[in-house]
């Protein structure tokens, strides 16, 4: 098993890559879920107000 820090000078590149991946996946998940939630809320508000304009004329 590779211990943390045992990668020597390569550790910063390897762990940096893993950290970056976690950030990209986390951001993608958060932004996608947020977009879905906002889209549904917007549609619900539109329906409640009987506004049939929508985003596409």
């Amino acid at each position: 098993m590779t211990e943390i820090g045992a990668m020597g000078s390569y550790g910063v590149y390897v762990y940096g890559s893993y950290l970056l991946m976690a950030v990209v996946v986390g951001l993608n998940w958060w932004l996608s879920a947020r977009r879905e939630r906002l889209a549904i809320e917007q549609a619900m508000r539109r329906l409640a107000a009987h506004d049939t304009k929508g985003e596409t004329p």
């Binding site: 996608s32 879905e36 329906l47």
Partner: peptide
Amino acid sequence: YLACIRLRAEIVLRERKPTWLV
């Protein structure tokens, strides 16, 4: 999985009156 979430958002945004959502 992420594409499913985003696709659902796109579908709802494109619907003029998504009554089926209710």
